[in-house]
């Protein structure tokens, strides 16, 4: 049997390893991206899961974006300006983004709420969005949601790990975020390449 990491795509082959997947200790993590055991799925079911379901129809009417979403919209345009070497514009967009970040709606500071949103994105949010993107042949949107879904799985994994191990999980170690796709990595050094979007290690930000 083969098992695939749903974050980075690493395949655990029982035959090659000589150890049954079910015999691995609970503390075992993906050698590529450190995702926990629970992020692995048997290879057959993974193949079955990629069969597109009929996408859910959204009404074409664009709902108004919330302040939090507008914050991301404008910080994205700030980054877009930077890429074009338009520093002044980048600064102005960032100012608008900061305003929307500040006024974004309050949320309960509750990690179980965070987990439930994360689960919802993994089970429904991203798969639905990917199906719509695939239906319209929108490669860019499909790519963004594919990365996002993988990142979401690692977010869920690290939150769950923290909830079970507490502060020990993060004592004497660094936390890194890939500045391109948002992949989160716990370790002393960032991975040599991002397991999700494949950028080199210097694109990782150390969280302080």
């Amino acid at each position: 049997m083969r098992y695939i990491c749903q974050v980075c795509g690493y395949v655990y082959d029982e035959e090659a390893e000589g150890v049954l997947f079910s015999d691995l200790p609970q503390s075992w993590t993906c050698p590529m991206c450190k995702a926990p055991l629970s992020m692995f799925a048997p290879v057959e079911t993974e193949e079955k899961a990629t069969i597109q379901e009929e996408p859910v129809s959204f009404d074409g009417d664009m709902q108004k974006l919330s302040a939090g979403a507008l914050a991301a919209l404008f910080s994205n345009l700030a980054r877009g300006s930077e890429k074009q070497y338009m520093e002044k514009e980048a600064g102005l967009f960032r100012k608008i983004a900061d305003y929307f970040t500040l006024v974004s709606a309050n949320e309960n500071p509750d990690s179980s709420e965070l987990l439930s949103i994360s689960n919802g994105n993994i089970e429904k949010g991203y798969p639905d969005a990917k199906a719509v993107a695939a239906k319209h042949g929108d490669r860019g949107a499909l790519r963004a949601c594919t990365w996002g879904e993988k990142v979401e799985r690692i977010v869920k994994a690290v939150v769950e790990k923290y909830l079970s191990e507490g502060e020990d999980f993060l004592a004497d170690t660094e936390v890194w975020v890939c500045s391109i796709c948002g992949f989160v990595y716990v370790g002393n050094e960032p991975p040599a390449i991002c397991p999700v979007c494949k950028v080199p290690d210097w694109k990782f930000e150390r969280i302080v």
Binding site: F58, D59, G60, D61, M62, Q63, L65, S66, G68, A69, A71, A72, L73, S104, I117, G120, N121, G125, Y126, D128, A129, V132, A133, A141, A144, C145, G148
Partner: peptide, 11 residues
């Protein structure tokens, strides 16, 4: 619309 939903949830 589909992208906006994801963005709202990430926000």
């Amino acid at each position: 619309a589909a992208m906006n939903r994801v963005v709202e949830s990430k926000a």
